[in-house]
Amino acid sequence: MPHRTPRPVLGSPFHLLVLLCSFALCAYAGMRLLDGDPFLIALWFVGAALVHDLVLLPLYAVADRALVKGAGRRRSWVTYVRVPAALSGLLLLVWFPLISGRVSERYEGVAGQSAAGYPARWLIVTAVLFGGSAVVFAVRVRWGRAVGAGEG
C-alpha cells in the first residue's frame, strides 16, 4: 500500500478510534462467549447473519416478487395477500419450535401443560388474518371501486 495517500487508505481517524474501542469490548466479551465450543458458537454467531442475509431474506423477497408478478395488472390487490401472509409467516418464524411440535414433549414435561394447541391456534390466527383481509378487500371493492385504481 502506498504511503503517499494516507487518508483514503486509513479513512476517518474518528471512525477508526470508535471502531477500535468497540472491538476492544467485543474481543473482551467474545473471548468469554467462545469459551466452550468455540467453533460451534462462532458458527452460530456468523451463521445467523449469513443464513438471514443469504437464505431467509432472498426467500421472502423472491416469494413477494412472484406474488407481484402473479398479480399482473391487479397490482393493488397484492396488499391483501401480502399483509396476512407476512404476519402469519412472522408468527411461524418466531414460534416455530412450538407450532411445529418439536418441543411439545419437553414443554409438557417441564411446564405441566399441553403444547398441542399451538399449531391449531396459529392456523386460526392465520385464518383470521386472511379472512379479515378478504373482508376489507371486499368492502373496498364494493364501496369504492376507485380505491383499487388509485393506489399505486
Binding site: V18, L19, C21, S22, F23, A24, L25, C26, Y28, A29, G30, R32, L33, D35, G36, I41, F45
Partner: peptide
C-alpha cells in the same frame, strides 16, 4: 453465558 456474553459482543458493535 451465550446470551450474556453474546449481548456484550453485540452491544460493543451496537455502540459503534
Amino acid at each position: 453465558p451465550l446470551h450474556f456474553y453474546g449481548a456484550w459482543v453485540f452491544f460493543g458493535a451496537f455502540l459503534a
